[in-house]
Amino acid sequence: MTDEIDASGALEAAGLGKKYRRGWALTDAAFRLPAGRICALVGPNGSGKSTLLSLAAGLLAPTTGTLRVFGRSAADPGIRERIAFVAQDKPLYPRFSVADTLRLGRELNPSWDQRAAERVVAEADVPLSARVGSLSGGQRTCVALALALGKRADLLLLDEPMADQDPLRRHRMMGVLMAEAAERGTGVVISTHVVAELDGVCDYLLLMGGGRIRLAGEADALQSAHRLVTGPSATGGGTPDALARHTVVETRTTGRQLTALIRPDGTPDGDGWIVTEPSLEDVLLGYLRAPDAPPLFTAEARTTFTEVEA
């Protein structure tokens, strides 16, 4: 990895917004993704994940703000060699054979690694002579991943890459991706709306909802910034006084018992309160259930520039 990559984030946005004819898909996004991270881009359908990835891939132009990829504008043609993108519906030429599709990668990329690409295809048990149009959705995804990995990019942008994979192939493809990350320090952004899919894989997290970034930062930092507390619910509902000091993300009441996901300010205490550290999935589910919870960015996820160009 070059120093240049380490110095500037893989992705860095300020005031980033994208408006389609039907409305805003992304508003005022400001975040930073350092290089070499395995980042989960989580959010419900229609939360702006695909828009953000298409902006990063240079396929869309932002309506407002700036998105930098390795310190340069996402529109900069020179940045194309350093990113690889797999779109959500995995567009490939259906009449091409798998070998033709890899040849496309070889013909159009100066840093192409044919062996790496062929390894992915072999790992997925897809024959090179098969026509792309005759493959299953999961196999097509593997060919698209092979094309992305053969490019030897520094950042892989993958839009729901595991959605149509069976468990075995999902495991193998994740293994291939992680091996690439381990070997070359390649950064990966994986969008998904299935939280459990990325367990143990991601060390960075972007949670989106309603076109906004709601959580951004290192997975362990985000996790340890939260506490799950269980105790008696307040009489007449509402947030118990014992929690008033903290930022309450979400509360759920079962009978007389209340469970709350909080961002503690100091040590949470109170009579009969049980305090535990939530799993990352607990945190994500809490935020997904509470769309109005205040956003949280770790220090590393804060954008380092404020200049906004139209």
Partner: peptide, 13 residues
């Protein structure tokens, strides 16, 4: 069919 995305994200202009 979206295949333009495939070509536009390779290394050619």
């Amino acid at each position: 069919t979206g295949t333009y995305q495939l070509v536009w994200t390779q290394s050619v202009g």
